[in-house]
Design a binder for these strands. Structure first.
Lengths: 229, 229
DNA sequence: CGGTGAATTGACGCTGCTCAATAGCGGTGG
DNA sequence: CCACCGCTATTGAGCAGCGTCAATTCACCG
């Protein structure tokens, strides 16, 4: 399961931030207090950690994709974020995790011991500031997502999702989605059928093209953006 | 509007944290780096700051209540939090606010210059850690709220809201809500009519008693709690 | 190819929204 | 002290958007 073999000596320094504004962000774990990162691999749908488990590690996605989510007793699921290569997860400030995390596809992550990180932060202000910023960035995403979940229509939600994924992982204008329609629905507060119908309607209108159900090319991003704000 | 008259020399030190677990939390702005706090008052429905305004201050509620929210162009509103006495708001890590803030009722807040706070955090690890924790606490609230907005029924949302408010501001078992049904609806992703109907249904079943539409006494909190999880 | 899980599509129903009328509450002034 | 007024909350009727259930169809991978 957890493959903790020391893989190399590279540090988190090469992995800059939660977002592609990487270069300007504070660099977690570099410098004198920098911590050595190990790596671990997870299969598709494999659990990385469970809600309310003690939080032993902090993670950074290298390859693949991770979903973090909460469950209700009857099985309803809310995915609160997808974490893509270069993004951190698992760094709330409490002792135990508040969410569960699973690999969406075959995934490799860098890990660092949480306690070590906290020890550094406790007397190194720049590291602590970096943690603050990263938490604040996640908070901003959560706030935007609450607006989506509380007040947007199904079509608006799906368009917002497509634009976000397009920005974060499109290569040469093509979006290769790692997650299923069910995952998307559980992220957007919809059913998988509603997601599918919305995507079909957009394709029908020529707003996007499919090449296989998980490969999407958006047409006219400007107009799409105007439909979610 | 902003009454920045130095009111007294007390410091944020007396205001402990975002939550009632105050005593155990790190104390923002105490000690050598502690910053002097001024105070300001706002009328009911008065704007405290607007979305995308430069973030000049960080706030702590003294008396009253504050709502922070986002708007869509057509007027749809999502309130992402109510801030009650003792709670901080306005401390994302960016240069400009991500939300608007308004006083729900006549409200008094303590304020501190954001730049001064950042200057302290930049070389004082404990202060930076306190900021990290506060952002992480807000993030936890946001994650719980996403589950509510994405996956809970109207009745479950209203019950969750009542239990949360009961915990945070009930005195002698009675909840005196400062906000309108519309505010509650915009917080829960519902209309004011649905909120009203849910409350009436709960009163009908004897799960709560009204004494005036904004004074509520919950009956059997245990059973109510079982209805939201 | 063939099999299996994912995605699409259709029919129908329910939850919560919209629009509208009424009732209640709190403040104000005669 | 009570009558009035404006705002807030309640309640009702009808409807629509999205969920549910079910049947195909599609894509991926051996």
């Amino acid at each position: 399961m957890l493959d903790l073999t020391p893989q190399n000596n590279e540090r988190f320094a090469t992995v800059l931030s939660l977002r592609e504004t990487a270069a300007e962000e504070p660099i977690l774990l570099r410098g004198p207090g920098g911590l050595p990162a190990k790596e671990a691999s997870f299969d598709r749908d494999e659990e990385i950690y469970g809600e309310s488990e003690p939080a032993e590690y902090v993670y950074c996605v290298r390859r693949g994709a991770v979903r973090t989510f909460k469950l209700l007793r009857d099985g309803r699921r809310q995915i609160d974020a997808f974490h893509l290569p270069g993004e951190y997860f698992g760094l709330g400030s409490g002792d135990s995790h508040l969410l569960s995390a699973e690999a969406v596809v075959e995934t490799r992550v860098a890990i660092v011991k949480r306690r070590a990180l906290e020890n550094v932060a406790a007397h190194d202000a720049p590291t602590a500031c970096a943690l603050w910023r990263m938490a604040a960035d996640e908070l901003r995403n959560a706030q935007e997502h609450m607006l989506l979940l509380g007040r947007k229509s199904a079509m608006e939600r799906v368009i917002a999702f497509l634009l976000d994924m397009d920005r974060r992982l499109a290569v040469a204008g093509v979006l290769a989605l790692p997650m299923s329609r069910r995952d998307i629905g559980d992220y957007l507060g919809l059913t998988l059928e509603t997601v599918s119908r919305s995507l079909s309607a957009l394709a029908e209108k020529g707003a996007l093209h499919f090449s296989g159900s998980r490969h999407i090319m958006l047409k006219d991003r400007i107009r799409l953006r105007a439909m979610t704000e």
